[in-house]
């Protein structure tokens, strides 16, 4: 899967380990094999191909119809499954944060690292088209961070995460937070191997954001309504916003927060802690098919 998105011939993804001194590595667009550090324990050292190669190239006459029945996203999905197995093997909770640009993801992560860093060993993968600005902010907040610059690509893909994990090397039972490229459209299609997507919407956006971008909100297990400290200054119908979110994704948890003032963030930290506990318990089960359903796997955190 190319990381290009309709506008990006010649795009180059770069992955920069800001924690290790900021040496930029050219990621390339060369579809290199997944980084060595990433192995699916269930398929140890077996190199996966995205499809079967017919080796009987012989003599299929013109007009032969070959049944393929393969998902266009199969390659990304396979790499995402490998990432997921890698996380599970280490009991790492991985969350993929998605929003439109400016909803406050980076500010949320900064505060989360500062306030809940003692409870969880946060490691961060930052995705942006360009600049390491957000990655630098995360580093300053005190978490190991790898910055992915997608060039002109508008979302992260599973192979980028696999390569970033090789740099980030998150330890056993840590929490990996992926800040996706600010975009509510494309990231919905691309599984990264996360346990949950967390959608962030701010009250400076429209009340109908969830209705306008239903794919993304429907994929989220948690919706954070951010910047609630600004409500007194806005004509924003919070109840309508919440009703719209509920309409699109009836089962997602919804929390109201302000990453600037800290309001409501205790419930977000509790949500992470509850997810960690459920995830680790499921990873520990001897006879598991992976840590359970994406939704409803455990008690709801305090709303």
């Amino acid at each position: 899967m190319c990381e290009t998105c309709g506008c990006s011939d010649g795009a180059r993804t770069t992955i920069t380990n800001l924690t290790a001194g900021g040496a930029a590595r050219a990621g390339g667009h060369d579809h290199a094999p997944v980084h060595d550090h990433v192995h699916d324990p269930a398929r140890h050292h077996r190199h996966e191909h995205g499809h079967d190669h017919p080796h009987d190239h012989v003599h299929l006459p013109d007009g032969t119809v070959v049944e393929l029945q393969e998902s266009v996203l199969a390659k990304n999905d396979q790499l995402a499954a490998r990432n997921r197995a890698w996380f599970d093997g280490r009991e790492i909770l991985c969350l993929n944060l998605v929003s439109s640009p400016g909803a406050g993801k980076t500010t949320l992560l900064e505060r989360t690292i500062r306030e809940a860093g003692a409870r969880h060993r946060f490691h961060v993968i930052e995705g942006d088209q360009a600049t390491a600005n957000d990655g630098e902010r995360i580093r300053a907040a005190g978490a190991p961070v790898v910055q992915i610059n997608t060039g002109t690509g508008c979302h992260l893909e599973a192979d980028m995460i696999a390569r970033a994990l090789g740099e980030l090397a998150p330890p056993f039972r840590s929490v990996v937070l992926i800040e996706n490229v600010g975009n509510l459209v494309c990231p919905a299609l691309f599984d990264l191997g996360e346990r949950s997507k967390v959608a962030v919407v701010s009250v400076t956006e429209g009340e109908d954001k969830a209705l306008k971008y239903p794919h993304m909100f429907q994929a989220a297990d948690l919706v954070l309504v951010n910047k609630i400290d600004l409500l007194p200054h806005l004509r924003f119908d919070l109840d309508a916003c919440l009703a719209n979110i509920r309409m699109v994704t009836p089962h997602a948890d919804v929390l109201q927060v302000s990453a600037t003032t800290g309001a409501g963030l205790g419930a977000w930290y509790d949500w992470i802690a509850a997810r960690c506990a459920v995830h680790q318990a499921l990873c520990d089960l001897p006879d598991r098919d992976g840590p359970g359903a994406r939704r409803g796997g455990g008690e709801k955190p305090t709303a």
Partner: peptide, 8 residues
């Protein structure tokens, strides 16, 4: 979102 088949 699937490729069903192709014709040689």
């Amino acid at each position: 979102l699937r490729v069903l088949s192709y014709e040689i």
